[in-house]
Design a protein around this nucleic acid. Structure first.
Lengths: 270, 270
DNA sequence: CAACAAGTTCGATCAGTTTCGATCATGCTG
DNA sequence: CAGCATGATCGAAACTGATCGAACTTGTTG
C-alpha cells in the first residue's frame, strides 16, 4: 500500500466521521500504528488535518452539506448547529434494525452523521442521504423511482407507482418549509406529492424543524399539523409556539445544540 | 510495444485509479520496472503526472472508481483498459440529447468518463453511475425504485412496478457475465429480472463485453444472443467468436485500448 | 485540591525491506 | 556500424514495523 493511498484513505475516513483513532486508520490502511502516526504527522504538516491525541480530526467540519449544495459560498446552511442537534435528537429515537423513512432536506440530511453506527432500513428520496449512508454506514437503503432534481438532489416522480408502497416504516422523518396552526407547509407541488406518498407508508411522522420555521410562511399546505406525531426543534422555540404544538397534541422534543458530542477541536478522542 | 503506447497506458490507468505502483504499470505495459521508471520520469518531466515513491499519481485525481469498489488493492477491475476502450466506443454511439439506459456493471461504469461532455437523459440502475453523472455531467438522471445492493451498488427490486415503464430510450447499454451462442448469460436471478425490465424500454440493445466474456460460462440465460443489436468488445476477440456474432446478425464494434482519443497535444520527446 | 498510580499514547531510534537512480551490457533498427 | 531503447545490477536512500523511555490522561486517594 502506498503512502498516497493511505493518505487518501485516512482523509476519506475523516471526511465521513470527522474524527478517527490511530487504530481505526491502521485497520483501514492495513499499516502499523507507527506508520499511521507518521502519516498523520505528514498530513498535519500539509495542513490537511488536525492531529490530536489518539488520532486526528478533519480540518473543516466535513460533509456537513449535501451533494447538491455548493459546499462553500452561498450554499451555507442556515442554522446548521441547530439542525445538527435536531437531527441527532431525531436519530436518538431510532433503535437498531428499525425501518425508517427519511425525506430529503437540509435538516434531515444532518441525520446521516449519527446514523453511521446503526443498522437501519432506510427509505429515502434524497440522493445525498442515500449516498452518504451507502458510503459510511451499514444501513440498507431503499429508493423510490424518479428523476433526480439537481438543486436539492431529490428523487421525484410525478407517478403514483414510485415503489414506495413496498416499504413500510415505523417512523418517517421530514423537514418542512414552515409550521403553523394552519398545517405543515411546503413550497413545491411535486415535492408535496412525493412526501404524501412517503407519509402513507409510515406509522409515525416526526417533524424536524428549527425554531425559525414556526415563523416562516409558505404557499402550500402539505398536511394538517396534527398529522405529525412529534416535532423536534431547538431551544429557541417561542412559548407561544410551544403552546400551539401542545394544543395540537404533538410531542415536542427540544434539542440543545451545545450538548451534542464534542465540538471542541483541541479535545482528545479517548 | 512503443514508448508512446506505454505512456498512454500509464496515463490511462492513472486517470482511472489516481495512483498506481511501478509494478502495476509494468504488468499493464509488459515492460520491466526499469523501463516504467524511465517512463514515469519522462511523463513527470512533461508535467503529465506526479511521480512519487513506489509509483505515480494523476495530477488531478478524479473519482473514477465506482463507489462500491474499495479503491485499494483487491478491488482492481480486471481488463480495465479494455473496458475503458469499450466504454468509450459505446458512448461514441450517443448523440447530444439522447435518452439511454445504462445497466450497472464495471464495464458500463467506465462510460461515465466519456459522458460528462454530453447532455443525455439516462435511466440507470447503477447507483455509482448516477452518482458520477450527477456530480460531473449535465445529464438528467432517472432511477428505478428498489433497494441498493452493496456489492455492486445496484438498485434492484423484485417488483414489476419499479418505475422503469415511464422511461423510453433509444438504446440500452449493458454488460454481461458471459456471451455465447446460447445467449447472454448472467449470474443472479434478481439482476436478470431487473435487466429484463430495462430491456423492454429500449429500442436497441448494445452489449459491452470484453473478449474474455466470450469464454466465460454462467448459469443463467438472460436472453437469446440475437436480442442484442450490437456488441462492443476489444481487439482480442477470437475469430471464432467474431463468426458467432456475425451469424447472429449482430453488429460488432471492436475497440482498441491503445487508440483512444488523442492524449498528446504536441509533445515530442526530446 | 493535590498527589499518586495505572494505563495510553507519543516521538525517537534501530534493523530489515523496498525502491530509486545510475551504470553497464544486450538487442533491435535504420 | 552507430544510435537508441531495454533489461539487469548494485549501492544509496527512503520507508516500514517494532521497541522503549518520556509525556500525557484518567481515576483514585489522602
Amino acid at each position: 500500500m502506498h503512502e498516497r493511498e493511505r493518505h487518501r484513505i485516512i482523509l476519506d475516513l475523516l471526511s465521513a466521521r470527522a474524527v478517527g483513532t490511530v487504530a481505526d486508520f491502521a485497520r483501514a490502511t492495513g499499516g502499523s500504528e507507527a506508520t499511521v502516526r507518521r502519516d498523520l504527522a505528514a498530513l498535519a504538516g500539509q495542513g490537511r488535518l488536525r492531529k490530536l491525541r489518539g488520532g486526528a480530526e478533519a480540518l473543516q467540519p466535513p460533509n456537513l452539506v449535501a451533494l447538491g449544495t455548493p459546499a462553500g459560498a452561498a450554499g451555507a446552511v442556515p442554522n446548521l448547529l441547530e439542525k445538527r442537534a435536531i437531527a441527532r435528537a431525531a436519530v436518538a429515537l431510532c433503535a437498531e434494525g428499525d425501518a425508517i423513512i427519511v425525506n430529503g432536506g437540509t435538516t434531515t440530511f444532518q441525520m446521516v452523521h449519527a446514523m453511521d453506527r446503526l443498522k437501519l432500513q432506510v427509505l429515502t428520496n434524497s440522493f445525498s442521504v442515500a449516498e452518504h449512508l451507502l458510503r459510511h454506514s451499514a444501513c440498507t437503503v431503499f429508493l423510490p423511482s424518479g428523476s433526480v432534481y439537481r438543486e436539492q438532489n431529490i428523487i421525484l416522480s410525478p407517478f403514483e407507482d414510485d415503489g414506495t408502497v413496498h416499504f413500510r416504516a415505523r417512523r418517517m422523518f421530514m423537514g418542512a418549509q414552515g409550521v403553523s396552526a394552519l398545517g405543515i407547509m411546503e413550497r413545491d407541488a411535486l415535492i408535496i406529492s412525493s412526501e404524501q406518498r412517503l407519509m402513507r407508508q409510515a406509522d409515525e411522522l416526526v417533524l424536524l424543524v428549527d425554531s425559525s420555521k414556526f415563523r416562516a410562511q409558505s404557499s402550500m399546505i402539505l398536511a394538517p399539523l396534527a398529522r405529525a406525531t412529534r416535532i423536534v426543534t431547538d431551544h429557541r422555540i417561542a412559548d407561544e409556539d410551544r403552546r400551539m404544538v401542545a394544543a395540537a397534541g404533538i410531542d415536542l422534543i427540544v434539542a440543545d445544540p451545545l450538548r451534542g458530542r464534542d465540538h471542541n477541536p483541541s479535545a482528545s478522542i479517548a
